[in-house]
Amino acid sequence: MWDWNYVFDILPELLSALKMTVWVTLCAFVVALIIGLLLAFAARSQWKPVSLMTKGIIEFIRNTPLLVQVFFLYYSLPLLTGISIPAFYAGVIGLGLHYSTYLSEVYRSGIEGVPKGQWEAATALNYTKAQTWRSIILPQAVPPIIPVLGNYLIVMFKETPILCAITLVEMMLTAKNIVSQSFRAFEPYTLVGILFLIISYIASLLVQRLEKRMNLQRGK
């Protein structure tokens, strides 16, 4: 049933698709990190309309399926605006934007973990708001949340098969194409699963080590 020759035949194609999968994940993660931070700032705004609107946007994005969102970006947005986005960018924006709403929550917990006295000391030394964020608050808020951010990176990686729905040639779509030519489904899909497992497992080990190191640093 399991044909090793067939496996070695299709492996190179799947591995090159794996590169695309990792690349789209990393790009989307950077988008999520940046937009997530901006959302966290905006949600804290003292100006009520901004914070309320931001919280509304966050709820909206979280409570609609990612698949619907990437469909909208790839198929509907061009109809509405006349601008069509290549599948790769639609995937990066869709995945990044979706997870930015979760990361904004992670940032929030990190920011709220910084004691109030740190803000007061910064005020007493006459730091501007921007200086306070840059040199006092974020350097203390971010290190404790790095492991959580790492876990989200892994979750995003495992979500990439959704992007095969907008014709992004990542691992899942590559496997599907192979299956549609050879009519053998067992090996390609199993291989995709194994490749996901290997990468995710290695990444989670790295996150665990990072977490241990962070704990050591904070406990010193």
């Binding site: 004691p115 000391a121 030394l125 006092i136 203390q140």
Partner: peptide
Amino acid sequence: MRCSVGMVFQHFNLFPH
């Protein structure tokens, strides 16, 4: 105005990083 004023806190509030 804050240029003229300084403060030392009960709980120090040093920057731990």
